[in-house]
Design a protein around this nucleic acid. Sequence first.
DNA 1: TATGACATGTAATCTGTTACATGATTAG
DNA 2: CTAATCATGTAACAGATTACATGTCATA
Lengths: 188, 188
Amino acid sequence: MKGGKGISRLGYALLGLLQQQPSSGYELRKIFAATSMKTCSDSPGAIYPALERLERQGLVRGTVEDGTGLRRRRMFRLTPKGLSELRAWIVRPVTQEELVWNQQDTLLRFAFSEQAAGRAAACALLKSLEAALKAYLPLLREELRSLPSTTPASGRLAFQYGIRGYECLRQWAHDAIAIYQKKGKGVL
Amino acid sequence: MKGGKGISRLGYALLGLLQQQPSSGYELRKIFAATSMKTCSDSPGAIYPALERLERQGLVRGTVEDGTGLRRRRMFRLTPKGLSELRAWIVRPVTQEELVWNQQDTLLRFAFSEQAAGRAAACALLKSLEAALKAYLPLLREELRSLPSTTPASGRLAFQYGIRGYECLRQWAHDAIAIYQKKGKGVL
DNA sequence: TATGACATGTAATCTGTTACATGATTAG
DNA sequence: CTAATCATGTAACAGATTACATGTCATA
C-alpha cells in the first residue's frame, strides 16, 4: 500500500500503457524490455501478478483470446474505474516527499498525462513540479552549507550532484511549460 | 541477492556509515532521517534486520554497551571483512545496467569512496562513470530519434528529461574529476 | 527434430513498509 | 505524574527478483 490506494509504480505504469492501447501481458513485458528509460522491470514474475491485482481491483479486465492459434492469450483493457484511478494519480500535486523518494513516479505520471488527462493536466503537473522544486532547492542548498566540516570531499560532491540534478529537473520543467504554452496558443 | 553478494543498498549504506564511525542502530537511523539526500529509509523495521544480516555475514560486529544507564544499546563496528566488502563494492566499475537501474548506488558508492578507499579510488570511480555515460548517451539519443511518431508530446518530453539528467551527471562527473586532479597535484 | 520466439504462469526467497510493543531516563 | 526522547525490536504484509515450468507454433 504505497501510492494512495495500494497500487505500485508498476501498477500505474501498466494502467498507463493499457490506456494507450489494450495489450497482453507479453506485449507489456516487451515494452518494458525494449525501452531504455526503464522505470519498471519486465519480469513475468512482476507483471502477471500485478495485472491480476489490478483485475481484482476492477481497474483492468482481461479477456481470453484464442482464435489466433497460438497459446491462448489474455488481452487486458482499462475499465472506466481504471481510467479514473489513472487520472487521479496523474493529477495529484507533486509533493516534496515525492521529489525525494519517488521522482520516477513524477516523470512517469507526466509521460502519461497528455493522453490520459489532457494537455491542461500535463501543464498543471509541470507547474506543480516547478513549485515543489522552488520550495525544496533552497532547503538543499542550506543543508549543503551546514554539512559538518568533517564531511569528505566525495560526500560533499555527491550532495552537490543531488542539487544539480534537481536544478536540471527544474530547468526542464520550465522549458516544458514554455513549450506547452506556446503550443496551446497555436492549437486553440 | 541483488548486489554481487547479497547485500542491499541499505546494507552498503550501513557499512559506509560504520566505516566512518562505530554507531548504534539508533544513531544510524537518525542519520538517515536527518539527511535530505535520502537514499534509504530510516525505519527501524528496515535497519535493525539489515544490521542483523550484516552481523550474520560477519561484516559488522555489535557489542552491547550498558554503562550509560539508558537502555542497553548495541554499538556496531565494521569488521575487516566488512571493510573489504565495502571497498569491493566501491571499486566496481560503473556498468550501463547500474546507470539504468541503480544510479543511486553509484552516487552512494562515490560518497563513501574517499574515506573508505582513498582519493585514487574516488577518481577512478568518476572516470568509470564518465566512460559508462559516454557509451550510453548516444544510445539514448538514438532511441529518442526512433520513438514512434504516435508518441505524445509529454512522453517525448519525459524521455528528453531522462537524457538531460544523464548529461547533467556527465557534466558533474567531468567537473568532479577536474577537482580531484587539481587537488591531487596540490596535495601530493 | 531441434531451436527459438511467442505466451503465460508459479514458487521460493528477500527486502522493505507499516504499525505496534517494550522499556529506561529526563524534563516539566 | 506525564510526556518526550532515547533505544531496540517484532509481526504482518506487500512487492520484486530469480528461477523454473509449461505449452504452441514456425523454421531451419
